[in-house]
Design a protein around this nucleic acid. Structure first.
Length: 353
DNA sequence: CATACGTGGAT
DNA sequence: TATCCAAGTAT
């Protein structure tokens, strides 16, 4: 069966959106454009991150920093602390840079053109198109994982991702309307999130069911095809839970780029495939101490490797020589500690006292 | 074009 | 337990 015209398809999905749009804290009602600052902030947070995870962070951020100028004036450490737990911390560093650029060079006004947005830190093809469409009503071709899936199924594209991305974008471009482009993009993303889901899609609820090639062929739940991902190796490290006489714990800031860049950590050895023994690890210790291994292990899975951390506890002999920050136990919650390091803290508090 | 980059929930 | 997945970007 041939597809309906693009105009008919967009009309149908917009009607579906008018009835089914999810109410989200960063979203304007159907038919309206949203605050560009809210759209930008939410889109950065939503990169590879679920709506459920983002919502409380978004509300915290806009309450504490109501405008992009407020965010630009904040310290990077405050932003990293507020971002802690959300993951992909380069987003927080780029968020700060982007806010400062918009505040300083554009008086706090976000660009409304896709190309200008695309040049800002942390804004790639998807986010530039999303902001242009959702915050400014520009007819940009918005392509995210949801829309890729919807389009792959509509046209029964069986070639695997990521190589087929340009083809999917070309097909999507042919459907994108010039009227209500922001609602259209959000409608497709909502459709992908709630109906055209990765597993067990609810095709009977889909406004595009009669036009969907994959559904007709009974292969909707198999698309889009993806290349197999490489196996995750395991890396090991040894973390030093270091106490001062007054009970403060030694923290250290990680390098500004790379994994957990700019975040705080419990000092540790490098993370490598081979396990560490204590004698060897002592060279990495932040300060001299008698180290006592704690029972058990802290495990954490990152995107591309598993981590096993043995935690050793010790009292610093010469705390004044330690390189880092002595933090009282009740102040740990206010530090920019990523989840893996909060696991180390929890483990140490459970085992070392 | 491939890889690095977090986390938590669902299956 | 293992794997997949979520509104991707930078290099």
């Amino acid at each position: 069966m041939p597809h309906a015209t693009p105009a008919a398809l967009s009309k149908r999905i917009l009607a579906w959106y008018d009835r089914n749009a999810r109410v989200l804290p960063w979203r304007a009602p159907p038919g309206r454009v949203a605050d560009p600052y809210h759209v930008w902030l939410s889109e950065i947070m939503l990169q590879q991150t679920t709506v459920v995870a983002v919502a409380p962070y978004f509300l915290t951020f806009i309450k504490r920093w109501p405008t992009v100028k407020d965010l630009a004036a904040a310290s990077l450490d405050d932003i990293l602390t507020a971002w802690a737990g959300l993951g992909y911390y380069a987003r927080a560093r780029n968020l700060h840079k982007c806010a400062q650029l918009v505040a300083e060079w554009r008086d706090g006004v976000f660009p409304d053109e896709e190309e200008a947005l695309r040049g800002l830190p942390g804004i790639g093809d998807y986010t530039a198109a999303a902001i242009a469409a959702i915050a400014h009503g520009r007819p940009a071709v918005v392509m995210d994982g949801n829309i890729e899936r919807v389009i792959a199924r509509m046209f029964a594209v069986t070639d695997p991702l990521p190589a087929v991305k340009p083809k999917l974008k070309a097909l999507a471009a042919g459907l994108t309307p010039s009227s209500r482009p922001g609602d259209y993009a959000q409608a497709l993303m909502d459709l992908g999130a709630t109906v055209c889901t990765p597993r067990q899609p609810a095709c009977v609820l889909c406004p595009w069911l009669q036009d969907c090639d994959a559904s007709h062929q009974g292969i909707a739940d198999e698309l889009p095809a993806k290349l197999a991902k490489p196996a995750r190796p395991t890396r090991r490290g040894l973390a030093f839970w270091t106490l001062r006489k007054d009970g403060a714990v030694l923290l250290r800031r990680r390098p500004e780029s790379g994994l957990l860049g700019g975040m705080m950590e419990i000092p540790s050895t490098p993370w490598r495939a081979e396990p560490w023994d204590l004698a060897e690890a002592r060279d990495s210790a932040p300060v001299a101490a008698e180290w006592r291994p704690l029972s058990g292990m802290v495990t954490h899975t990152f995107t591309h490797f598993h981590l096993e951390l043995l935690v050793v506890a010790g009292r610093a002999r010469t705390p004044e020589l330690a390189k880092g920050l002595w933090c009282p136990l009740d102040g740990l919650g206010d530090q920019a500690l990523p989840t893996v390091m909060r696991k180390v803290v929890r483990h140490a508090l459970a085992k070392a006292y």
